[in-house]
Design a protein around this nucleic acid. Structure first.
Lengths: 199, 199
DNA sequence: ACAGTAACACTAACCGTTAGGAGTTCACAT
DNA sequence: ATGTGAACTCCTAACGGTTAGTGTTACTGT
């Protein structure tokens, strides 16, 4: 149970939300590049500096709530059933994330992202950070004694799967194919002399 | 035979080179972020607009001649010996590229890149473009009849190998390990019913 | 020679982003 | 209650990358 948040925190959250909502609306109406930060600030009735006190950059306005992407991935590793193999768990999570992006409500947003190089670039560097924390989570699992390199590599591959599947004509089929490859790559990293349990 | 380039083209090339040299020198002396485009332009004795007519961005000044990265990769695919398997050919090329980056003369440059987030981000998005053209080259090879998805995936993996190996403490060992994984991933994409020749 | 044009310069601005400093509102301890 | 400090926001001004507009120079092909 969380204590009821004070007025201050509520106001702050409201301001943040108003900025994010206004920004997304303007971006979708006129296109990301055609809307300036000054426009967003004016429309949301806040100062430009306030926008940047809530969001690190213009691009971050678009990926406002996608910080749980990272959490969901690491959760898929740390919170999976005991002795459940790693790759299927990751596959399930990635599939769910890809489907969420393909949902009708999200489509215009992703169209906008695809159309702006700045946003694509920003997303890609987000993914890199996600891959790093996923690698850390994998490396920390005692059931999977792999080298650091193997963990970082497989984390990259999983992130690649997400971004390739999102672009594919048939995301489900692409995910099938890519995860078959990832499974094989993961298998050859199994330390020799381990038990017969596949992890 | 190319006709001897006219005075105009020579002057243009000279200007471009002078800008690139000046920029790299200043960047190494004072750090990438501490040098402004206006500084570079003044020191190279050209107008700011001239700098941007030769280079698309400040970051591009640093990766001036690294456009052959893309060419070397696609060459490794299209120019390999007949019936030579794909992955070892790529592995050889990546290894050579990684070693080249670790060469003493290049070290200060890479240190500078590592220290600037803007440059790291720029490089990563370059790599993505390289992955795309590598994927195209792989898809175009008649010896390797794989799906588009498999080609794009393996291309990403290879690029990942480059960037992971460059960061690793022991690049050679990391490359060994990563390419074992890539080899396994590639193997499972082999179309059923193909001959016994491994490609 | 002459016209066309590529390369370059200059100015002035746009846009994202940040620093500095001041005002307001809230939380909390007394 | 009230004072106090911290958090939030505002405003102004600037910095640095990037581009548009407009000439000017100097090479090229005829």
């Amino acid at each position: 149970m969380t204590v009821s948040p004070g007025r201050r925190e509520r106001k702050k959250a409201a301001t943040r939300q108003k900025i994010a909502d206004t920004a997304l609306r303007l971006f979708l109406e006129r296109g990301f590049d055609a809307v300036g930060i000054r426009d967003v600030a004016a429309e949301a009735d806040v100062a430009v500096t306030t926008v940047f006190s809530h969001f690190a950059s213009k691009e971050a306005l678009v990926f406002e709530q996608d910080d749980d992407f990272e959490q969901r991935l690491t959760q898929a590793v740390t919170g999976r059933a005991p002795h459940e193999p790693l790759i299927p768990a990751l596959r399930r999570e990635i599939q769910s994330l890809v489907r969420h992006c393909a949902a009708d409500s999200a489509t215009p947003v992703w169209r906008m992202i695809d159309e702006s190089p700045a946003l694509r670039e920003y997303e890609e560097s987000m993914r890199l950070r996600h891959a790093e924390s996923l690698a850390t989570a994998i490396a920390a699992d005692p059931d999977l004694s792999r080298t650091t390199t193997a963990c970082r590599t497989i984390a990259r591959f999983v992130i690649d799967a997400y971004s390739l599947a999102r672009e594919a004509a048939d995301p489900d089929a692409a995910l099938d194919e890519i995860f078959r490859m990832i499974e094989a790559a993961w298998a050859v990293t199994r330390p020799s002399g381990s038990s017969t349990v596949v992890t």
